[in-house]
Amino acid sequence: MKVRTTVVLLVALVMSAGYYKYHQWHQQEAIRAALEYGRLAPLPDVTTDLQVDTEGSMFSRTFWLCFKADKASIDRWTAQSSTLAKQTPFTVTSADFQSIGTPDWFNLKSITKGVKYVIPSDEEELSGTVWIDYGSGTVYIKTSHS
């Protein structure tokens, strides 16, 4: 009986570790795809509070990505992102946002001092929007294809 219990615990531990590794891989793939869809630079090294979610199918997919960084890192990131560096951002306030259909943590209404970049659709129908809240150092990214 003791051997059986040990085997069951070992199998549960291996399965848990496998699920954890799969979850990590899945999250990194979602981050990679979100940035690729928006033709955005890799995230700053000092990124904190990173969150990502995805919705859709192979025919239509949306990615939501959020991270925090200091102003200098965010400014470097926008300068290195080809689709953002070419644009002058729009100034926005929290009154400009609707959060219908977004993850709970994708809270654009909390933006206090923000700008918005619109990522135009390319030949593969990849597009998106980037909101930066300089008040809290939070970057919100929504990219998609359809």
Rank of each mutant, 00 (worst) to 15 (best):
F67M: 06
Q28D: 13
V115G: 04
T93V: 14
I132A: 12
K86A: 15
Q80V: 00
F67A: 06
P89D: 13
L10A: 14
S57A: 07
M15A: 15
D133F: 04
Y117N: 09
Q27N: 12
V130Y: 06
S60V: 03
A41Y: 05
F106R: 02
S136I: 05
S121P: 00
P103Y: 07
L10W: 01
P44L: 14
E55M: 09
I31V: 15
D49L: 09
S60I: 01
M1C: 01
F106L: 06
I74F: 10
H145R: 12
G128V: 05
V139S: 08
N107K: 07
Q28Y: 01
P89K: 08
K68E: 15
T6R: 08
T5Y: 07
P42Y: 09
C66A: 15
A34Y: 03
W105K: 02
R4F: 11
I100N: 10
C66K: 15
D133Y: 05
Y19N: 02
E36N: 11
A79T: 12
K116I: 00
V130F: 08
Q51G: 02
T83L: 11
E55P: 00
V46C: 09
F106K: 01
Q27T: 14
V130N: 10
I31M: 08
A17M: 13
V8I: 15
A33V: 02
R76P: 00
K2A: 06
G128M: 09
V46P: 01
T47I: 07
T5C: 00
L9V: 02
A33R: 08
S144D: 12
D75G: 03
T78W: 05
K116T: 01
F90W: 07
T112F: 00
T112W: 00
V115I: 11
S146T: 10
T62Y: 12
L108I: 08
T112M: 08
P103C: 11
S146I: 11
W64K: 01
C66W: 00
P89T: 12
F90Y: 11
K142W: 06
V52Q: 05
T5V: 10
P120L: 12
V118A: 13
V92P: 08
L43I: 13
E36H: 13
A12N: 04
I119C: 06
F97V: 12
T93K: 14
Y117Q: 08
